[in-house]
Amino acid sequence: PEQQLAMLGKAHEFFQICDVESKGFITRGDMQRLHNELPLSLEELEKVFDTLDTDGNGSLSPEEFSTGFSQFLAEQKVS
């Protein structure tokens, strides 16, 4: 439970890094802007966006984002 809260807090922090205009969602363009801040290629950021955008509506909700983050954490624990 405590870990869950910490995870959500982190996910929220990261969401805000991506959602610079505080729109409440992340667009493909927001994701590509991270190219300047993160050591990832535009192609990789596209892939991240597509992976997180599970409903394929072209924007990432905080829920989609935190779901992706918790999946990442789960995989980290397994490996």
């Binding site: 922090e13 990261f14 890094i17 801040e37 993160l38 050591p39 990832l40 990789e44 950021l45 892939k47 991240v48 597509d50 992976t51 997180l52 992706g68 983050f69 999946q71 990442f72 995989e75 980290q76």
Partner: peptide, 29 residues
């Protein structure tokens, strides 16, 4: 196999992305 290299799978690329965010956060107090 080119698909085996790190970051080629969606899981790998997602891990890359979140790891970068994590190190970005810890990198700046």
């Amino acid at each position: 196999d080119p698909n085996m290299k790190a970051g080629a799978t969606s899981e790998g690329v997602l891990a890359n992305f979140f790891n970068s965010l994590l190190s970005k956060k810890t990198g700046s107090p």
